[in-house]
Amino acid sequence: MVEFVDIALLVLLGITAFSIIRQKNLFAAVMMAGIYSLLSAALFVVMDAVDVAFTEAAVGAGISTILMLGTLALVGHSEHQPQHRPILPLFVVILTGAVLVYGTLDIPPFGDASNPVHHHVAPHYLEESEHEIGIPNVVTSVLASYRGYDTMGETTVIFAALVGVLLLLSLGPRPGRVASNGRATTTVRERDKAVSEEGMEEAQGDTLQVSDEENTLEDTNG
């Protein structure tokens, strides 16, 4: 029964992933990606990873989809037909896949309790956690106590990612003010950035000859 559910979920995942590539409408592709996440969460439950399934369902199908949709609202949702033939990527992918399948032939069979992965620190965690930490959920005790450093690093990475997003989206010049000619709306704080972007565009030989005059105008204003 478990095998049947496992195979069915994996096949569904494969179909979903395949239809994501075929999909030209990005809104549909994002919704399919949400379904993909939810299916993989179901697969994690079958694989006994309830904590992971919980996280995947909340993050992958929830927050991640909302972020993607928010991006699509900003950048548009149609994908162009690729211009070059997909022969070379297909060749690379099939070759890589063949090498990986060759690599799996040495992997110990799925679900065997004597696999090497189960004989390092995992038995220690499973046997001693109840006495050393005293909480029933081993995942929590490993996450927060045995591998506390690891989790602290992950938390810091998340914080660093937020700093990156804020630097990219919240502090830069606002959209539409630099791109169109509405330079008057650029505030003093954002002016330096806008000027430097203009400098870049000039260096690329674009049709922005007006920028010099505008700079002098702004200098007299400021």
Binding site: L74, L162, V165, G176
Partner: peptide
């Protein structure tokens, strides 16, 4: 905060 940053970005002209 990430949601605020994405939602507050306004439509691109």
């Amino acid at each position: 905060a990430v949601f605020y940053a994405f939602a507050g970005r306004g439509r691109v002209e």
